[in-house]
Amino acid sequence: MRFTKDHEWVDLVGDTATIGITAYAAEQLGDVVFVELPAAGKTVKVGEALAVVESVKAASDVYAPISGAVTAANSELADNPQTVNDAPEAGGWFVKIKISDPKQVEALMDIHAYNAFLGTL
């Protein structure tokens, strides 16, 4: 699993990356009440708005950490947005993306680098 400074995680299996927000981000947001996800088929580039995650007190844009085509969005979140709080780095995933450039994943932080980054915040 790889991480971004914007607190997203990327888990690459084959050429499909699963993307979500980190436990740290979920904690900062508080109780998540709504997640707006893109439809399958949408193509995104690094840095483009990918999703919106809302808690009662905050609304945050989630930007694509990698480029590619969305193959699936986590429909579970529509009915149970609290999954993002309960299991942010497992059942609380946001989307799956068929990636266009594996190098983009390699450029992201590993768990040690991300933990070190959190230590600086």
């Binding site: 981000a25 900062q28 007190k57």
Partner: peptide
């Protein structure tokens, strides 16, 4: 992700 605003706690 950019957290646009952080305010008060919302659940007791």
């Amino acid at each position: 992700m950019t957290i646009l605003a952080v305010g008060r706690p919302t659940r007791s």
